[in-house]
């Protein structure tokens, strides 16, 4: 590849270690490896694949997303806002009788109650997802690795962060090797 992310940066070994990555050839071996990493009790790690791998949540031991709670909260917020807005605008602040209807009634308020609940929930889903995924961010240490870029094409990667309490490089290398990981490589922090 012509473009090298690391070319203008400091030499690799001068930068602190971010973690260790290993490549796997197919989703099945990736899942097997993920199950093993989970069993070993690692916490700061993730898997990377070109497509969603069925059953990976279970293999990694991921808990259900907390984004639902954000959405639930936003839904109720939207509902309350819509109620207060319509009651205040139509019923209190600027009273105009339209087509002989009550100034404020749940019947005519319902479409807006529904719309704002959905809109706020959608905002909660999108922005909640971004926040929980620690996004947006400019770069990631893994992007410094040429081989990692193929993860959007035909490679499957597991990376364990040095921040993990159980991180021990020689042990990890052995573990990845025994799981069939190829191109086990150190990943440095961004410079």
């Amino acid at each position: 590849m012509a473009y090298d992310h690391g070319s203008h940066a400091a030499p690799d070994d001068a930068r602190p270690l971010w973690g260790l990555m290993a490549e796997f050839s197919d989703p099945a071996s990736l899942s097997r490896a993920a199950k093993h990493v989970k069993k070993e009790g690692f916490r700061n790690w993730d898997v990377y694949s070109p497509f969603p791998v069925h059953g990976m949540d279970e293999a990694m031991g991921l808990k259900p997303s907390r984004v639902t709670f954000i959405m639930g909260f936003m839904c109720l917020t939207g509902f309350t806002c819509a109620w207060l807005m319509q009651w205040w605008m139509g019923g209190v602040d600027y009273k105009i009788v339209v087509a002989g209807k009550p100034l404020f009634a749940w019947e005519q308020a319902t479409p807006i109650l529904f719309e704002l609940s959905v809109l706020f929930s959608a905002f909660g889903a999108v922005f909640g997802m971004l926040i929980l995924n620690l996004l947006p961010r400019w770069n990631h240490p893994l992007f410094g690795k040429q081989r990692f870029l193929r993860v959007s094409d035909d490679r499957f990667v597991i990376a364990i962060e040095a921040a993990d309490p159980k991180f021990n490089e020689p042990d990890l290398r052995r573990m990845f090797e025994s799981l069939g990981g190829k191109h086990i490589d150190r990943v440095e922090e961004e410079s």
Binding site: A99, G100, K101, E107, Q108, T110, P111
Partner: peptide
């Protein structure tokens, strides 16, 4: 059901 009720309520 709400749509059915709402349209009848609103058209009156």
């Amino acid at each position: 059901s709400f749509s059915q009720y709402f349209l009848i309520w609103y058209a009156n």
